[in-house]
Amino acid sequence: MQHLLYIPVLLAYVAVTVGHLVPWIVPAAVRERLRALGAAGVALHVVALGADVAVGVLRPGLPEAVSSVSLGVMVMYATLATGRQKALGLLLAPLGLVLLGLGLVVPHEEVAGLQQVQGVNAWLPIHLTLLFLGVAGFALSGAVGALYLYVHKALKAKRFDVIARLPSLDWLDQTQFRAMLFGFLALTLGIAAGGALAVASFQQSWVMDPKVVYTGVVWLIYAAALQSRLIWGRRGRFTAWVSISGFALMVFSLLGLNFILSSSWHGYVG
């Protein structure tokens, strides 16, 4: 990653986050344009990532992974956080910022399997893009799920002063479901693309890779949640908790798992 290009992105995300968390210290002119500022940050973020690709310094590794997820989260922020949905900024903006910050400070660890990928293989970018889209979808689903739990609790406790400013319960429920479905589809296709990549590059069995197994378990959890919603109408707090824990598992997979997995292709070799 070329860190210099990320400085304006970081500044934009910091401003957006501060604007949402402590709005009263931000001048009104900025406070009114947080979403536009976020969108500008996203555009710069795309430029920074694009520049990395262009000059060939993009060796997919930990920082790039985290930075891509941050981009996905901020895209969702810039698309959704308007009107009553502005409260989403309270969760999405800090999440995007923290992920970007992590991307800038974590050491560049390279994924073991990459060293075996011969030349240019189209399956690699497809595999990566789909999985980051998936994680971004789960991030949104998790953030919305958390907000759902809060609004549900406030509605039951009859605390009307807080909910009047938040999105409606149904909107949160729908959005959480759609984001989860989106993440799930991307994850499914991403895993399939990873399989294709493994077959094309390593010509050997890939199923028993520990990260694949771990992701498979998360996939099953999401599949079960979506299934029970679509068939039995299971929704609400249950789905919200699945959203939150599913995203936590995904973050662990992204940040922690690769360090432990020395025997995996997905493990880091430094």
């Binding site: 509605l155 009047a164 999105p167 409606s168 319960l169 149904d170």
Partner: peptide, 10 residues
């Protein structure tokens, strides 16, 4: 109506 707004969004 306000209550419906909070729950259903309209």
């Amino acid at each position: 109506v306000d209550l419906a707004q909070m729950i259903f969004g309209g």
